[in-house]
Design a protein around this nucleic acid. Structure first.
Lengths: 143, 143
DNA sequence: CTCACAGTTTAGAATCATTCTAAACTATTG
DNA sequence: CAATAGTTTAGAATGATTCTAAACTGTGAG
């Protein structure tokens, strides 16, 4: 032990700052979850996959808290919810403008950069409605 | 009584033919549901909304059968499943190429003709994967 | 027209993801 | 350090959907 703990501490401090900025009290659980979610590259998680991961890391966080936290992070703009599967909800750490490939059989999401794709010809919505967002899901399967 | 029954019979006969062509035995329940689904213009239903409708029409069909039937019709290509809401599944009687506006608050779907919208710049999927379909959901809200 | 059987329907139980509840805990502030 | 508002949690509850196994019904053969 040496590097891991030190990095852990630095990471935790940054994470706590980030949570405070988002208006969230940096509790042990939120810091743990945020560290897992935001340390690496972009990630796509479900409540269960994240709960499994945090549990395997030897940290005790209830599934209810994982659900709460995912929703709070989403409201705070730290995550984005992705709806592609009737069976479960995915959360994406990439909150920028982008779209997805979705491999249904395996429940795998792959980002498509926002600049890559362009959607043309969206009609004006019916009167009284305004566009919030345009989601594109490219459903793929193993060849 | 006069017109209604006669039309009903004609409709039923057409519907039974349609079901047979799709490889589905035309049972009372399937004919009832198909009549409701396909008689008018394009429709978007959930299992519950369709069950309510058929029940209000005075026809006895179990909710389980509505679920079964919706899935069978979908497999047979008579319906298309639309995934826009984590909470419930929608089925669309329009199986052609088109996209949707979705008014989340009210659970309302509105078709956008396929010719209207064009999606450009979809990257090649990762090796070993092929594109099945590109879904576009324009999420709207009351202004 | 009738029988037999494969395919269907169904009530109710079961499942699964998710949310709720209310009691125990903890970060924060004074 | 104490008070308190915000959090966490186990477990119950919910809601959509699926399953089960028993009863029912198109259909094709005779």
């Amino acid at each position: 032990m040496g590097k891991a703990p030190r990095n852990g501490k630095i990471l935790a401090a940054q994470t706590m700052e980030r949570l405070r900025h988002a208006g969230l009290r940096p509790t042990r659980q939120r810091v743990e979850l945020a560290s897992l979610l935001f340390q690496d590259c972009d990630r796509h998680v479900t409540a269960e996959s994240l709960h499994d991961q945090v549990t395997e890391a030897g940290v005790k966080v209830s599934l209810a808290t994982v659900y709460n936290t995912l929703h709070q992070f989403t409201e705070a703009g730290l995550l984005r919810q992705v709806i592609v599967d009737a069976a479960r909800s995915y959360f994406d750490t990439n909150t920028g403008d982008h779209q997805h490939f979705f491999l249904e059989k395996e429940g795998v999401l792959i980002d498509i950069p926002g600049e890559a794709i362009s959607v043309a010809g969206v009609p004006n919505p019916p009167p009284g409605l305004t566009v919030e967002r345009v989601d594109v899901v490219v459903r793929v399967k193993r060849a």
